[in-house]
Design a protein around this nucleic acid. Structure first.
Lengths: 131, 131
DNA sequence: CTCCTGATTCGAAGTCTGTCTATGCAACGT
DNA sequence: ACGTTGCATAGACAGACTTCGAATCAGGAG
């Protein structure tokens, strides 16, 4: 059921491809790059999705079952499923069915990418949250 | 005309205040923190606003005049003004009137904050775009 | 095979967003 | 004082987003 991500941000591991890392803070963003980036940020622009992503990223073993996600919200199960789908289409998470349950995990390449885009060149390292 | 930011993210320079840095990737996000974070990400979730922010951040002298921003888009001047207002309310930029023209500049604390939130603890430093 | 549970998909309210035109306000020049 | 230019605000409207209940699909158990 995965295999439908939008493959945004061109996260193809190539160190410096052609249309490589969009530069948000140092050069004017091209129109198409802005459109792709906006999809990811829009996916993060909802409190429910942020909490979902947070729960997924901090889940034991790096993954979590939908059945553990749903009861944490005052929302119907289809609504949670919808938000998970949007996060998946943004390339932020992926999932796999294992028997009865579906497990989700974070795709760190995308968050790393965003962090890099939001980092000013002069900066040594943005203070990661103290674990 | 500034002075109406939402003061999101509690960017009060305190190194480790009480509800300090929300941990997106290492611990489940609290509801109110998720709501505040979502406002900022939502402001970034539009291609026009991303390009505006990019142009502002990369402007000569760290600032740029609205009159240089508006003609770069196929949008009406009030629409640009509207997007700038949203970016301002998200705490991403600020502005000042100097004579006839209004100048905007980036508030790096907010983007730094977001970069930190999106950075995994194990990570040394997200690759900042090569200047 | 049939039933039950977990999860996604579908269709339909209700609300929010992005955009426009029209208007208002501030600063400058004549 | 008056008109012009630059920018912000107000109101209106189409399209998108969020949410729900109902229906559907996938696995496991009896």
């Amino acid at each position: 059921m995965p295999k439908q991500e939008l493959v945004v941000l061109g996260q193809t591991a190539a160190p410096a491809a052609d249309g490589c890392c969009p530069e948000l803070l140092t050069a004017p963003l091209a129109e198409d790059q802005a459109a792709e980036l906006a999809k990811v940020f829009k996916a993060l622009g909802d409190p429910v999705r942020l909490r979902l992503l947070s729960m997924i990223a901090s889940g034991a073993g790096g993954e979590i079952c939908v059945c553990d996600l749903t009861p944490a919200f005052d929302l119907s199960q289809p609504t949670i499923s919808h938000h998970l789908k949007l996060l998946r289409q943004a390339g932020l998470i992926d999932c796999e069915r294992r028997g009865t349950w579906v497990y989700y995990w974070l795709l760190p390449e995308t968050t790393d990418r965003l962090a890099g885009i939001l980092t000013r060149p002069g900066r040594p390292a943005p203070a990661a949250p103290r674990s």
